[in-house]
Computed example of a mutant assay.
Amino acid sequence: MKTCRKPESAKKGCMELSAVKTDNVPLSEKVSAQIIKYIKENRMQKGDRLPNEKKLMEQLNVSRTTIREAMRILSSRSIVVIRQGSGTYISNFPGVTEDPLGLQFKYDKEKVLMDLLELRYLMEPVIASCSAQRASKEEAREIQRLASKVSECIKSGVDHAEQDVEFHCKIAQSTGNDVLNVLFPEIVNGIRMFTTLLGDRIIKGVVLDHERIAQAIIDGDAEGAYNAMLV
């Protein structure tokens, strides 16, 4: 689109959205497909702002109602986030819905929890090892800071579920693996349930684990990080 803001990451100039013609496909679906094409062609990134409704209406020659229906479709697919009074933005995890693994349709919740934990224990030693090899100094320091936060919460008797999830997700993020960075938060949310379920029975081990893992990553010790995550 000629008049829209060019994302910093875009390699080409803004491209026009071609006018939408009616056919057997619902018009709102057609418009949403055109907007997705525009996002991809302009290499828009999370947080980038889409053109406003008026500009989209002019470029696509459709009504405001159709634009809003298309945006609701994109929002339901977690491609965009609609902020009232501000605009429409690319979501943090475009295309990833709130339940990408379909776990809400698994009715044996206890088994789901244990399966998530098993998957976590299979993955996390390797993730920690990769983090020790790939994390920047800034990322390693942030991991150490988060480990300290978890320890402080536990020692103070404060719920540490949020800090624990943040710690493990940061380790995964520091590997630089984009696919892992999308999938892992869904898996590690099982940690929150696990902590709530077992409570004080895991407090001592959790403190030691987090501190050992963080120190190994700081030291760039891949084997040490792997082994610390196994404990």
Rank of each mutant, 00 (worst) to 15 (best):
A147G: 04
S148I: 02
S148G: 11
K149T: 12
E152H: 07
E152T: 10
C153I: 01
K155F: 06
K155W: 05
K155R: 15
S156R: 14
S156P: 07
G157I: 01
G157T: 06
V158K: 12
D159T: 05
D159C: 10
H160L: 05
H160D: 09
H160M: 05
H160Q: 05
E162I: 14
E162N: 02
E162R: 05
D164P: 04
D164A: 09
V165L: 14
V165D: 11
E166V: 09
H168V: 01
C169D: 11
C169S: 10
C169F: 01
C169W: 03
K170D: 01
I171Q: 10
Q173R: 08
S174L: 10
S174C: 06
S174M: 11
T175Y: 03
G176F: 10
N177K: 05
N177T: 05
D178F: 09
D178W: 04
V179L: 14
V179W: 11
L180V: 08
V182N: 02
L183G: 06
F184E: 12
F184W: 15
P185V: 06
P185D: 09
P185Q: 04
E186K: 14
E186V: 08
E186I: 07
E186P: 01
I187E: 08
V188N: 13
V188W: 11
N189W: 03
I191D: 00
R192A: 12
R192E: 02
R192G: 10
M193Y: 11
F194V: 13
F194L: 15
F194K: 12
F194R: 15
T196Q: 15
T196K: 15
L197C: 04
L198Y: 13
L198R: 15
G199N: 13
G199I: 01
D200L: 01
R201T: 14
I202A: 03
I202D: 02
I203V: 11
I203T: 14
I203F: 05
K204L: 06
G205Q: 07
G205A: 06
V206Y: 00
V207I: 15
V207S: 10
L208T: 14
D209K: 14
E211I: 03
E211Q: 08
R212Y: 01
R212M: 11
R212E: 07
I213A: 00
I213P: 11
I213C: 05
I213R: 13
A214C: 03
Q215S: 00
Q215A: 04
A216P: 00
I217E: 04
I217Y: 08
I218M: 09
I218W: 02
I218A: 06
D219I: 13
D219F: 09
G220D: 02
D221K: 01
D221R: 00
D221P: 00
A222P: 04
G224E: 04
G224T: 04
A225F: 00
Y226W: 10
Y226Q: 10
N227M: 15
N227C: 04
